[in-house]
Amino acid sequence: MKIERYKPPHQRRLENIWHHAMPTLTLAALTIISILPLPIPNYRFFTPDLSLLAIYYWCIYRRDLIPLPLCFAMGVFEDLFDGYQIGINAFIFSIVFLTTTTRARFFRKQKYQILWAGAAALCFLATLLEWVLREAFLTDHVTLTLQSFINAGLSGLLFPPLSILLSKIQKTAPVRVH
């Protein structure tokens, strides 16, 4: 029988805080990274939607720890940086949250390839939704460019490394500590 190592109360408290804050912190970090002008060639031209992927991942694996208001707030944060109508990304993130949480159990039972395909499909759907919203709320006619689809495809391709990273982070607090 495996005996759990004794942990002092302050360490347990810290682990508990980390356990609850982990999805919030990673989502906030990825949202900030997505708006930073990183010195990677053509990074600004092909900006992957890291925050969307993080919402997808956490909604499937730790839906109890990722609240909807947080996703909404992160969307507003991205909207403020975009400089156009406030609410577009917030709305998209909320839809992604709802779509994923309602199918979280299904995704958890599937093979990894299905999960990956789900992430890629979600990125394309989010791009289309963003286009519809911008077309509806902007005075100028917004065209769907090749770059939009490349961005969505790139986001889909980035899901495996990002999911590995997030799962490693998740394993740092594997058990819910009371």
């Binding site: 997505s34 708006i35 930073l36 002008p37 600004r44 900006t47 939607d49 925050s51 991205e78 940086f81 975009d82 400089g83 156009y84 990304n89 791009t127 963003e130 286009w131 911008r134 917004v142 460019t145 770059q147 939009s148 961005n151």
Partner: peptide, 15 residues
Amino acid sequence: RVIATSSSSFVKSVL
């Protein structure tokens, strides 16, 4: 210095 960019492919602006 450019300190932030838009994260969307539909928006082209920098902060």
